[in-house]
Simulated assay, not measured.
Amino acid sequence: MTNLLSYKKIWGSVVATILMIFSLQVSAKPPIYTSYFSDLAVAGYDTVAYFTESKPIKGNKRFVTEYKGAEWRFKNADNLAAFKATPEKYAPQYGGYCAWAVANNDTAKGDPLQWTVHNGKLYLNYDAKVQSKWLKDKQSFISSADKNWPNVIK
């Protein structure tokens, strides 16, 4: 009988430890936003194109690199080379999470079609409604988001 109680205590401790580890892993978010079923950064859009062509352009599977655990696609070899040379210049701020959400100490997906380049940096927003709020006071939101990042993903 005492062996059975010992096994139950040990098993209970093992289960509790596993649940604790799982809950810690679930709460931490990756440094680069990707959808649940993909490892594509910025939903496969070419981040260099925001700077060189001032518009979102889908990347090509032939021009790809890995950065911070995500796959990044580009429309051509030149954009891929530019990103590889200075990824921090072209990667969206706050890992591609919605900049307005990060400013409000939260996270949400960043939509590559709701974007702003401000002072040489790329920012994504959740949707058009959020972006309209963001654009009204982006400098203030950037200051807040800079203070909150990266703690919001920990």
Rank of each mutant, 00 (worst) to 15 (best):
W134S: 04
A49P: 06
N119F: 02
A145N: 10
D106E: 11
L113F: 11
T47D: 09
A28K: 15
Y67K: 08
D46G: 04
Y123F: 14
K154H: 15
D146R: 02
P87V: 00
E66G: 08
S23H: 05
V130I: 15
N104D: 11
Y126H: 13
A82H: 06
L122M: 07
W115F: 14
D137W: 02
V152Q: 09
K55G: 07
Y94V: 04
S6H: 12
Q131A: 06
K121I: 00
K121F: 06
V26F: 05
G110R: 10
F22G: 03
V117C: 07
K58Q: 14
F63Y: 15
N151P: 03
D39W: 03
N105M: 01
G95T: 03
E88H: 06
K29R: 11
T17K: 00
N3L: 10
F141H: 15
S132L: 03
S13D: 01
I10C: 00
S144M: 11
Y45A: 05
N125P: 03
K154T: 14
N79A: 04
Y94E: 06
Y123C: 01
L122A: 09
V14F: 12
K129V: 05
E66Q: 13
D106V: 02
R62W: 04
S35Y: 01
D78L: 02
G69V: 02
N119D: 14
N151G: 14
Y33S: 04
A99P: 07
K75G: 01
T34Q: 13
A77L: 11
I18A: 13
N60M: 03
G110D: 12
D46E: 08
K121M: 03
G12D: 05
V42N: 03
T17Q: 00
M20F: 15
K61R: 12
V117K: 09
E53T: 08
N79R: 03
C98Q: 06
D106L: 02
D78N: 05
S140W: 00
Y33Q: 11
N125M: 02
N125F: 04
I18Y: 08
T65K: 02
W134Y: 06
T2Y: 14
W100N: 06
L19G: 15
G96C: 05
P112K: 11
S144V: 00
Y33K: 14
F22Y: 12
Y36K: 10
